[in-house]
Design a protein around this nucleic acid. Structure first.
Lengths: 144, 144
DNA sequence: TATAAATAGGACAATTTTATCCTATTTAAT
DNA sequence: ATTAAATAGGATAAAATTGTCCTATTTATA
């Protein structure tokens, strides 16, 4: 559904949000450990998220990544997915046709529209804060 | 959502079904033209579909691909997707975790379960015959 | 001011997916 | 029998994605 890069991006952002709520900034190394992702590759993903103002990066000693409390509440999964995978998750024909729309639909256009719409709604209505609920109590996890 | 191979596979099967309903067998060359796909790559996909008894292949002069009328009605998109992409379309964690299930869920487990379930239902309830409806009258298309 | 810890980013490598090419085999038709 | 048209399948190439390595830059702290 999503690229690996996007999966790492969502997990990383969620972990950063969790720690930011506790008031601590986290390093790339810690993030990669906690979400079980390749360090250098995760760095690239975080660069992209930083450029898209989804996470804040602080350089230098005692630097790291963080997300403001306002953003933890405001940023939705949809923004992260868009920043990394673009919009072909929502758009883009299920059968790979370039010109597939209501006027010139593929045979499953309407059915895919429905499912993609549900996915889009879910991503647009799930904030980073929502993602962190359950993590503290171990009800949900970001690795394994 | 699906791999390119799978997209070609669905489009090819649908075209073969359409022509089989008209009583004619179709060649790889014609299929690739009509669904706008790379010929040799489509050949590999069709080999796989043939091995999975989704399409019938006939070798030799005046050979080609066809699907029995019984199969046009019985074969569902889900079988084609499974034959090519396996079951990671339905299973597989949305965030890429290996051990993600109701007991040890990722933060969006339940939401993804719902969407994947809708997708699965759709694929399991759409037959090749359903796919061909609308193609004759030009209401739907397999290329462009 | 020197040092150590951290992100940024360029270059490269490995892997997977997608695509092509060529030869073998099968089969209808001449 | 020969030929031509078709699929089967192995080998290879190209492209995209994923992953690694190294150096530059930034910055807090001793």
């Amino acid at each position: 559904m999503f690229s690996k890069a996007c999966e790492y991006g969502i997990r990383a952002s969620t972990y950063i949000a969790l720690k930011s709520l506790e008031g601590t900034r986290v390093s790339l190394k810690e993030i990669a450990e906690k979400i079980d992702s390749p360090v250098a590759f995760t760095a690239k993903v975080l660069q992209q998220l930083s450029k898209n103002h989804i996470v804040d990066s602080v350089k230098g000693a005692s630097g790291g990544f963080q997300i403001t409390k306002a953003n933890i509440n405001q940023i939705k999964l949809a923004q992260i997915v868009f920043a990394i995978d673009g919009n072909n998750v929502y758009e883009g024909c299920g059968l790979g046709l370039k010109k597939c729309n209501a006027n010139e639909p593929c045979p499953v256009h309407d059915k895919f529209v429905q499912i993609r719409s549900d996915l889009k709604n879910m991503l647009e209505n799930t904030s980073l804060y929502d993602m962190t609920i359950g993590l503290e109590e171990g009800l949900t996890a970001l690795r394994r």
